[in-house]
């Protein structure tokens, strides 16, 4: 165990990349989730159909396959160079989780009681005002716990980026392990603990949101 500081100082070099991918993916996935979720409750059938197609494609295939696919297809097939592989990873993760999370956006919008829409029609609110002031505030409360769960899923997904050559926590862990085989148990336990420490605030957020969402929603 004397090598623990040694291992830590190696592995921690990947912390920046892991956190960067995590934060960027959370932001992009959330934006995608809202745009796609709102599109799926839109009255325009073309928009609904297109986003439905996107959601099913990305939910139906595996994230790790998508990650490899993007990392080879973007530069190779489409000649798109995002400058850094970080953006390839962020693109794959946020398109994947954006698709999943758009379903909770859609689900919670549809779960707001019909009476709420009727009351806002009776008060002559415009369609936009109904969504903005009545439906979305309630839908948000409902979706928050599940949203928190997905943030943890995204954190776990960031560990995949080492597979396309990004130098994250797991990447440095693997490097260290390859030269110090006997230390493997310490390396991976340390990695798991580090991921768990990053997850703790997300877990706390999720639990808090579970209690918040129980209040203030009409059923």
């Amino acid at each position: 165990m004397s090598s623990l500081p040694d291992i830590f100082s190696t592995v921690v070099q990947g912390l920046g990349v892991t956190l960067q991918v995590l934060v960027l993916s959370i932001i992009c996935a959330s934006i995608i989730a809202f745009v796609a979720g709102l599109s799926r409750v839109n009255t325009n059938p073309l928009l609904r159909g297109f986003t439905g197609f996107y959601v099913e494609i990305f939910r139906g295939t595996s994230l790790i396959v998508q990650l490899f696919w993007f990392s080879y297809a973007l530069p190779g097939l489409f000649n798109i160079h995002l400058g850094s592989d970080i953006w390839v990873a962020v693109l794959a993760i946020s398109l994947n989780y954006g698709a999943y999370m758009s379903e909770i956006v859609r689900g919670s919008i549809q779960a707001v009681a019909v009476g709420q829409t009727e009351a806002s029609v009776a008060l002559n609110l415009s369609k936009f005002q109904r969504m903005r002031h009545v439906i979305l505030p309630q839908a948000l409360r409902m979706m928050l716990p599940e949203y928190g769960n997905y943030l943890i899923q995204i954190l776990k997904a960031t560990s995949l980026v080492s597979l396309i050559g990004l130098t994250d926590l797991l990447y440095y862990g693997n490097i260290y392990r390859s030269t110090h085989l006997a230390e493997s148990p310490t390396v991976y336990v340390l990695l798991l603990v580090m991921y768990f420490v990053i997850a703790l605030p997300l877990i706390a957020f999720t639990r808090k949101m579970e209690s918040v969402s129980k209040k203030g929603v009409a059923s």
Binding site: L155, T158, S159, L170, G173, P185, V187, V189, L192, I203
Partner: peptide, 14 residues
């Protein structure tokens, strides 16, 4: 809440 990939590596390598 920790990555299954790392858990997999733990079981296989460690």
């Amino acid at each position: 809440s920790t990555p299954p990939l790392v858990q997999l590596f733990f079981i296989y390598y460690a």
